[in-house]
């Protein structure tokens, strides 16, 4: 077990190193000069050059990267050109919001997707299943910005019961979480349905029924654990993605999260922030993959971590 964790940790470092190289190159290959952006369009070239020199932007790319990695290893994510604040502080202000929204959305996705998936499997190829499949397809196809705005207009504004946007407490989480939950739950519904259809036709389900186990217990005790394995894989990627920031939803709801920050930074060519947000998203993916592997081994005894 210990050696497994060590191997995974080294693997994670390699992945993160690769991602830092790629984002670094992409960020610096992008058009636009951050120094010019900082000092403004009318500043004389000498000032721009001075700023470039101060930021180290006049040095060769590999040297810049080494400086960047050196600072990163000391926990220094750099300094935002645009906000005049340390990147770590900017992210720190928002990461909590994003994680809250991610968990709230994920709970909505699972609460909707899991039971509807089981339902679809039990009514496989019957009318109820066809209707449900159609509805989940509709949910899946709705653009997040459209559904989000529709909720703002009809629920937040129309009924006047929930805030229009921004952050602060559970009431601010409800609408964005529903937006993400309804549009993403279809993936869980479909995964759980197809794997449960498969599981319900297995021999061990017949064994359970031959032992006099009633239908509801056949599903919950004998089938569900087997049927959940594909959904766990997806949940890992899904949570990682949500925690990395959901750009559209956060923008629609003016929700101060990492996704909104990423979008703003791209608009402002604020490279240190862009790189930090990408790196954080990557960290979430790596961490979630690790957690998924552990959950696998808990669900399915045939999978061992060593």
């Amino acid at each position: 077990m210990a050696s497994y964790i060590l191997r995974r940790f080294i693997g994670a470092l390699v992945v993160l190193f690769g991602i830092s190289v790629i984002t670094f190159i992409i960020a610096y290959a992008a058009p636009g000069d951050p120094a010019r952006l900082i000092v403004g369009a009318k500043a004389p070239q000498t000032v721009v050059d001075a700023v470039r020199h101060n930021l180290g932007l006049d040095q060769p790319l590999p040297i810049q990267y080494i400086h960047y990695i050196g600072r990163l290893l000391h926990g220094d994510l750099g300094f935002s050109y645009h906000n005049n604040l340390p990147v770590a502080e900017l992210i720190g202000q928002r990461i909590g919001n994003t994680v809250q929204l991610a968990l709230a959305s994920w709970i909505v996705e699972v609460i909707l997707g899991l039971p509807l998936g089981i339902f679809g499997a039990l009514y496989h190829r019957r009318t109820a299943d066809y209707i449900l499949s159609f509805l989940t397809l509709v949910g899946m196809s709705m653009p997040v910005f459209w559904f989000g705005m529709w909720l703002i207009q009809n629920v937040a504004y129309g009924l006047g019961i929930l805030p229009l946007g921004g952050v602060g407490g559970i009431s601010h989480l409800i609408l964005p979480a529903i937006t993400l939950g309804v549009t993403n739950m279809a993936f869980y519904q479909r995964l759980v349905k197809s794997s449960m259809v498969d599981v319900m036709s297995q021999d061990y389900i017949r064994t359970a029924r031959a032992n006099g186990v009633p239908a509801h217990r056949v599903v919950t005790r004998h089938a569900l654990k087997n049927g959940l394995i594909p959904a766990v894989t997806y949940a890992g990627m899904d949570i990682a993605q949500l925690c990395g920031g959901v750009v559209l939803t956060e923008t629609v709801f003016n929700y101060q999260g990492v996704g909104q920050l990423a979008w703003q930074s791209i608009e402002n060519l604020d490279f240190p922030v862009i790189m930090a947000t990408v790196l954080i998203a990557a960290v979430f993916v790596v961490v979630m993959n690790f957690i998924v592997d552990i959950v696998y081994s808990l669900i399915d005894p045939r999978i061992s971590l060593s």
């Binding site: 064994t207 032992n211 006099g212 654990k225």
Partner: peptide, 23 residues
Amino acid sequence: RKFRGNEISMIFQEPMTALNPVL
């Protein structure tokens, strides 16, 4: 259901798949 596994039991051909792998 009161008869299944109680008064009448059954064993199957494939012991490899007739048992639940996760229980």
